[in-house]
């Protein structure tokens, strides 16, 4: 009962704040500003008109979204998989850590978009290059967090498991991996937004579809409505992604939540 009431309150607040924002936006562009900036109605109209029916460029909005999403997902999961394996190995084995950590420390601070020019020169920034950039964005954060998660496993857990007869492999899979999950998820979350930013940057530089392309194409045509529609779509999809992410995390890290 209480929880339901809380949810309803939250929903009302959300609706009120978004509506207020839209109304202020609507009023704000009535005057001089209106020449530089479209109001919310044309943007929302365009979003829904192009979602399945009309097109931006040669594709509907949903196809543009799917292009961006597929690029993100391919690079994200690839980077996450490699990152978890490498990070846990670095946290678990001194040798692996000694070999990889110097290299990793240098690569990590380089933002993925810094690789864009090189990618263009080398391989023309096609699909594989875009996915590679997104891979980097995801890989770095996930590795870092898996690494620190594995290094900071409470020695009491390892000790208790060892006492119950666990061998090295069992310690890795029954203690180090599950104990690192919250840290890995923190990395996965940052990685997801970083991947989302990277795909847009890559699409803005070179592509013929995707949400980043919508914005750049809008700029080239001086079409403010299209730019704002692209931005709206980026916001909505990003929000959806993080909502899905939190649901998955809540399921997998149930034990880590204090109280319910």
């Amino acid at each position: 009962m209480n929880k339901k009431q809380k949810n309803i309150t939250e929903l009302i607040c959300a609706v009120v704040s978004i509506l207020t924002f839209l109304i202020l936006w609507h009023i704000g562009v009535k005057g001089e500003l209106g020449r530089l900036m479209p109001g919310p109605l044309p943007v929302i109209r365009m979003f829904f008109a192009t979602l399945f029916g009309g097109t931006i460029g040669s594709r509907t909005m949903i196809i543009h979204i799917l292009y961006s999403l597929i690029r993100v997902m391919a690079g994200y999961f690839l980077g996450a998989a490699v990152g978890v394996v490498l990070g846990l190995s670095m946290g678990w084995s001194r040798l692996v850590e000694a070999v990889f950590s110097p290299l990793f420390r240098i690569i990590r601070p380089i933002p993925p978009i810094a690789w864009i020019p090189i990618s263009i020169i080398w391989i023309g920034l096609g699909e594989d290059a875009k996915i590679f950039l997104i891979f980097l964005a995801s890989f770095c954060y996930v590795t870092l967090n898996a690494w620190s998660g594995a290094k900071n496993v409470d020695p009491d857990y390892l000790r208790a498991a060892r006492m119950l007869g666990a061998g090295k492999r069992q310690l890795l899979f029954t203690i180090v991996l599950p104990a690192s999950i919250p840290s890995i998820f923190a990395g996965l979350q940052v990685a997801l937004s970083s991947c989302w930013a990277t795909v847009l940057a890559a699409e803005m530089v070179r592509s013929s579809e995707g949400l980043g392309w919508i914005i750049i194409a809008g700029m080239n045509n001086n079409d403010m409505v299209q730019i704002m529609t692209g931005i709206l779509a980026i916001g909505l999809v990003g929000m959806l992604l993080s909502m899905i992410f939190r649901k998955v995390e809540a399921r997998l890290c149930q034990w880590n939540k204090s109280g319910s």
Binding site: A160, A161, M163, T174, P178
Partner: peptide, 26 residues
């Protein structure tokens, strides 16, 4: 089997899974 002075249960396992942990290992 060693029962430590402090808490040594695994927080990611349920009570039941914790009790079964040593049996799983073996």
């Amino acid at each position: 089997a060693y029962i430590f002075q402090g808490n040594s249960t695994m927080p990611w396992l349920t009570v039941e899974q914790n009790v079964a942990f040593g049996l799983d290992i073996r």
